[in-house]
Design a protein around this nucleic acid. Structure first.
Lengths: 156, 156
DNA sequence: TTGCATGTTTAGAACGATTCCAATATAAGA
DNA sequence: TCTTATATTGGAATCGTTCTAAACATGCAA
């Protein structure tokens, strides 16, 4: 995993502390296994926003062999329980924009539409911590999907 | 392709107008081919932020068979010339964050680090056009990479 | 403590997006 | 027209992720 310490930490020790997590899992009728314990341990206090591959590697250092399927399953479970946030934008496909004028984008979590953000959002935010912001992607639920009418989704 | 009309259009008819584009390509020593012409035609004025697959489909409707490799090559070329913007965040890997407290993220284009944005960025922006914003991803060059010292990249 | 039903793990196959490759074809300047 | 650098092509290869069916283990109940 690429070591990347965070400078600006909006970090609060979440509900992944072993004991707390175990209680939550139990309450949700989810069984505790060595693999899950290891994933929880790897994530607890982790500020590096690891990928699944990085988690697999870290878990293997801890308990030896694990199947990547298990890691994905566990991460899905934790995400479903609200214990981890999944950071995935663009739904695994790159999109192309012929409009090269500076502007930002909005991505709908439900229908996966990519929309232009209005121009006034262009220069509203400066960088922070010495990081230069070039683009901004807003993620959420678009008006169509949010209004409860038509909505199309992919995957399950 | 998912039809998704934009409500907020920050759209300016860019340099993809056939004549203009051809001149630019020629100036860059890039040959004009039927395939490239078709890609340009598909993108010109296109506000749907299509994926490569959608572009392949549209180009096929126009000129018949094309290899997907050609589409990717062409898109790379156009991107290199600054004629299209590539919208890809997260570098094709999902990242996981155990910190479930509301906060946003910064992704470095160079080293692909994912950093937390400071809390004051959390509620600075409201939705627009009826779209509900749930998360924001800032993309740019992080302090370490920007300062011209260490910097690691993947891919070419 | 043991038994057991159900939830989990696993390896590997399958998948979708993208890139790579080597062979063939073609744009466009001389 | 000839030449040659540049493009296109199909298919194989790669990467991240999901699926599948079989083997396994957790934890409640007896």
């Amino acid at each position: 995993m690429t070591t990347a310490e965070t400078s600006c930490a909006a970090y609060a020790p979440g509900p992944l502390k072993p004991e707390v997590a175990e209680a939550l899992l139990k309450a949700a009728g989810v069984r505790m296994t060595p693999q899950r314990r290891a994933v929880l341990a790897v994530l607890d206090g982790n500020r590096t926003h690891p990928t699944a591959a990085a988690i697999v590697e870290a878990v293997r250092e801890r308990i030896g062999a694990v199947s990547v399927a298990t890691i994905y399953n566990t991460l899905d479970t934790l995400a479903r329980l609200g214990l981890v946030r999944v950071l995935d934008v663009m739904e695994s496909s790159t999109h192309y924009d012929p409009n090269t004028a500076p502007h930002h984008h909005f991505v709908c979590r439900r229908c996966h539409a990519v929309l232009d953000a209005p121009p006034e959002y262009a220069s509203r935010l400066a960088g922070f911590g010495g990081h230069a912001i070039e683009d901004i992607v807003f993620i959420g639920t678009c008006a169509r999907c949010g209004s409860g009418t038509i909505q199309k989704k992919r995957k399950s």
